[in-house]
Design a binder for these strands. Structure first.
Lengths: 147, 147
DNA sequence: TCGTTCTTGCGGGCTCGTGGCAATAACGAC
DNA sequence: GTCGTTATTGCCACGAGCCCGCAAGAACGA
């Protein structure tokens, strides 16, 4: 099942901005949905649906449905680092990629621009248009590599 | 939980060879384990544990345990393409990576050598030692990109 | 304010994977 | 070959992550 990776990447200044965009798309703003949006804005990294549900004291299934809706409409995106649950991030800022250290679990976020050369290489070599948003680049970070 | 990515990459000519290596490591050769090894050799791509279990009419839990053992000892490796179950491949041939088309689901296998420039770029740019065996490089294949 | 339509909480259920347990199979020693 | 030890098996139960149906309730346009 291919998800919303093709949804337009919107760019929001803040929650109010995102809410306006929500309205434009004809989506309703339930209390839950607003809280989830705020949580995504407040988060300083990818968060799981269960995490949000616990944090906000919402039904997990409802959070899943909301995140799916937000993803389908280009407000959020989900990805997988290691083996845990899927993680959600706000979309719209700079599209980004992730470097995941399999030794220490560190996650480094890199911007789309920084990944351009990599993407170009994949394109030239294999003809694929690569996206580094869904799965991280797995490896060992500098610290773990040298010891 | 970090799995066997650090286990030595063995290289087997055929099943008999792998079985010999199994013995050297003090592992027993149960009928199930032999069948699973043979299935991995026969497979022309990554296969799920459930698939193997169905195919061989074995208990799924037993297959999972066997694959875990084989992975821990460097005989196999598991990876994730899309959202389905984990998939297992024989290790030991050339270590490889995967290009996954999120449109059509096509999986292209690429050799370690072909990925070297990519790895070098990640190293120079971010200081990470990248491994492309566990998660595929996600994108759109040439055919899907042009339409 | 009302009616329509979306969303929620709740319960249940599916898939993928793990763990305990007694029975059984593999293998080395003899 | 037989035997004892130890790994492995099938079976079952369970847990995480996620999804779905349904009735009650909330959001929004008219």
């Amino acid at each position: 099942m291919t998800v919303s990776h093709d949804a337009p990447g919107l760019a929001f200044v803040d929650v109010a901005d995102a809410i306006a965009a929500l309205r434009e798309r004809g989506l309703r703003l339930s209390t839950s949905r607003r809280l989830i949006l705020e949580a995504l804005f407040a988060a300083d990294g990818p968060v799981s649906a269960e995490h949000i549900a616990r944090e906000l004291n919402l039904e997990a299934s409802s959070v899943y449905r909301n995140l799916e809706t937000l993803e389908r409409h280009g407000f959020a995106r989900h990805l997988h680092l290691g083996h845990g649950p899927g993680l959600y991030v706000l979309r719209g800022r700079e599209e980004q990629g992730f470097l995941y250290c399999e030794r220490c679990g560190a996650v480094r976020t890199v911007s789309a621009a920084e990944l351009d050369p990599l993407r170009a290489q994949v394109r030239n070599r294999f003809g694929y248009e690569a996206r580094f948003e869904h799965f991280p680049i797995v490896g060992t970070c500098p610290a773990c590599s040298t010891q």
